[in-house]
Simulated assay, not measured.
Amino acid sequence: MTHPVEALAAGLLGRLAARPGNLAFSPYSVAVALAMVQHGAVGETRDELLAVLGASDPAHLDRDLADLARRLREPGDDVVLTAANALFGQEGTSFARPFLDALTHGYGTAVHTLDYAADAGSARRDINAWTSEQTRARITEIVPQGALGSATRLVLVNALYLKAAWERPFERTRTADAAFHLDDGTAVTVPMMRPRLAPTHLGRGDGWLAVPLPYAGGRLVMTVVLPDVGRRAEVEEAVAGGGLPAMLASPEPTEVDLRLPRWTVRSQVPLKEALAGLGLRRVFSGAADLSAMTTDERVAVDEVLHEAFVAVDEDGTEAAAATAVVVRATSLVPSRPRTPVVLDRPFLFVVHDAELRAPLFVGRVSDPTT
């Protein structure tokens, strides 16, 4: 069965790909946040959450995410990877003990009490401060002004941070300006990097090339997927249709003469509409049954807020993501021929676990200069 993070990566890319320009999101962060909400859901509301996550039942969902979390606790030397969860609940609201136990014991969720009714602005600042601390100040405002109010009853937040050195570093002295061709036919000048030692694997498929770039220790990998000229939309559709695992598993031993631009991508993505398009509807409506969360009053999810940051340079990658669910009332080898792969046009990237291939960050670089 598809890992819940893979299922969500495919579904969200399918819904978000129509957005123009650069894109980044963390299916892992969103999956963890929705999995926590699932523990407060009952009946059809829970079934919809499980379906969007591609999970057969809550126990399998928890197990799959726990297995991945255990692998991520030891990402390797020269790699920092941290994840944290928090529940910010309304003062005076009684939350069901099984719900709190599932979050604290299963997801390590810290529980905080705030007073949205008295001062939603102060509550917002506290949530943003916690998120900023967890993401090394890369995500400083996951909850925008106006997102909380007196009807807010809780906010569930997942925060993810990565700083990883390449296993095969790029040499800054080999970086040189080159053209990057945009979708509209124009070109921009970007610093194009070359690794000191050539990548040793290349994947090929219908309309695309894929190059895995391991981070130090080999537990995590960034795979860049370069569509053939004129086939980007087709390749993104293939990913959304479930083709990502095959792309990540495809590389064969081949020396690659790689050119890769530096880039920094930041995306703020409210996910309510995208998730509704994937079939998650009841949880956002008056029909939501979150009675396993609280029985003090009927509650529903008001918004799923998400932001991701990914920066790539010669040394490695720094990336961060946060998801907030707002709930309201109601070595050197001999030289061989190398396959050239020049990422001089829009391409996809996936930061993923090397063994499970579960994606932590997914995105598209349409213009490295923006």
Rank of each mutant, 00 (worst) to 15 (best):
A18G: 10
R19S: 14
G21D: 09
L23Y: 00
A24V: 06
F25L: 02
S29R: 05
S29M: 08
V30G: 00
V32L: 13
A41S: 14
E44N: 12
R46D: 11
G54V: 03
H60W: 09
D62M: 07
L65Q: 02
D67V: 07
D67G: 05
L72T: 03
R73I: 04
E74Q: 11
E74G: 09
P75E: 09
A83L: 08
N85A: 11
T93E: 14
F95A: 04
G108Y: 06
G108E: 12
T113S: 15
L114G: 04
Y116E: 09
A117C: 05
S122H: 09
W130P: 04
T131A: 13
E133F: 04
Q134D: 10
R138T: 05
T140Y: 03
P144A: 07
G149W: 04
A151V: 07
Y161I: 03
Y161V: 03
L162H: 05
P169S: 12
P169A: 12
A176M: 10
A178V: 05
A178P: 02
L182I: 06
T189E: 15
R196H: 13
R196Q: 14
L202N: 05
W208L: 12
W208M: 07
V221A: 08
M222L: 11
T223M: 04
G230C: 11
A233R: 13
E234D: 12
E237P: 01
A238P: 02
P245Y: 09
A246M: 06
V256E: 03
V256P: 01
R262M: 11
Q268C: 07
V269R: 00
P270F: 01
L271R: 01
K272N: 13
V283H: 00
A288K: 03
D289E: 13
M293T: 04
V301N: 09
V304Q: 00
A308D: 01
E314T: 12
E314F: 03
A320L: 06
S335F: 10
T339V: 14
F347M: 13
V350G: 00
R364Q: 11
T369H: 08
